[in-house]
Write a protein that binds this DNA or RNA. Structure first.
Lengths: 141, 141
DNA sequence: TTCCTATCTTGTAATGGTTACAAGATTGAA
DNA sequence: TTCAATCTTGTAACCATTACAAGATAGGAA
C-alpha cells in the first residue's frame, strides 16, 4: 500500500487526493515551504486546488502529528514533514531554513524534566549566517 | 542616571516617556505579554498611549537588541526583555510561558559552528505541561 | 535658553494573511 | 449500491498588523 495512504489510515483520516499530494510534496521537498509555495507548486498538476484546502489539510495533518509548523519567524507558516527529531537553522541573509539532523541531548532538558515539567516537544532554532552566504561575502571582497 | 535612560542612550535612541515605560514594564514584568496586554496595562497610567506606539516601540527596541520577540507560537507577538541568554517552556494547558534561566550548552551548537555556520542566536522552545497543571490533574482525580 | 530639524507619537485608514461559512463533491462503511 | 459523514472549494468576513500624515517632542546647535 502507498506509504502516504498508510500514514493517513493509521491516523484515522480519510484518504483524499489533496491530502496525499500535500503529504507527498512535503516529504519529498524538505524545504519548509509556506502556504503560498505549497499552493502554487501543487496547482501545476491540480489547477482546481484551493488555497483554503491547503490551509485545511495542513491543519489536519499537523493535528494528526504528521507535520509540524515551524515558528522560527513570525512572518509566515512554514511546513515541515515530521520525520526524526531535528532542529533548524535560519540564515538571516538568504532566509533559507536548514535542517539540523542531529538531536541535542542537553543537560537543560534533563533538568526541567527532573523538576517535574512534562516535556512533549523540543524545538531548537539557531539563527545566523549559513556557509554559503559567508562564502559569498568572502568572494565579494 | 535611570537604568532605562542609559540603555536607550547606549543604543542611540531618543529618550521618550513611551519607550521608558515599555522598557521598564517589560523588565519588571517577565510575563511575555502580547501587544494587547502591554497596551492595556500601560494605558492605565497613560490613557493617551496608542497601540501603534506600542508596535513602533517594540519594533525599535527589538532592532536595538533590548528586547526579543518570542515565536514560540504563531498566534501572537510575545515580548521578552533581553536579559542573560535563556530559553522558554510553553505549557500547552495554561498557555503560560516560563523562563528557563539556564543556557544549554550542547554538542549540536559546537557541531554546526565547526561546520562553518555563524550562529548569532539560539532559541530553545520546550512545550508540554507545567508542574502546576499536572498537579491540578492529579488533584482532579 | 531659544531655535530648529529630525524623529516620535497618535489616530485613522488600508492591507492582506487567515478563518468562517455554505454548497456541492467525495469517501468509505453498511 | 446507498447514504451519512466529511472533505473540497470559492467567496466573504475578520482582525492583527502596517502605512500614512499631521501634530508633538527631543535634543543638538547657536
Amino acid at each position: 500500500m502507498d506509504r502516504y495512504v498508510e500514514l493517513l489510515k493509521k491516523k484515522g483520516l480519510k484518504i483524499t487526493p489533496q491530502r496525499l499530494e500535500i503529504l507527498r510534496y512535503l516529504d519529498e521537498n524538505r524545504i519548509h515551504p509556506n502556504i503560498e509555495r505549497i499552493h502554487s507548486d501543487l496547482k501545476k498538476d491540480n489547477p482546481s486546488l484551493s488555497k483554503t484546502t491547503v490551509y485545511n489539510v495542513i491543519d489536519d495533518l499537523t493535528k494528526a502529528d504528521l507535520l509540524q509548523i515551524l515558528t522560527i519567524n513570525r512572518f509566515e507558516i512554514l511546513c515541515d514533514f515530521k520525520a526524526d527529531p531535528h532542529h533548524h537553522f535560519l540564515c538571516k541573509e538568504c532566509k533559507k531554513v536548514y535542517d539540523l539532523d542531529e538531536d541535542f541531548n542537553c543537560h537543560l532538558l534533563e533538568k526541567i524534566r527532573s523538576e517535574g515539567y512534562q516535556v512533549d516537544e523540543v524545538h531548537g532554532y539557531f539563527k545566523g549566517t549559513c556557509r554559503s552566504c559567508l562564502n559569498k561575502r568572502e568572494g565579494g571582497k
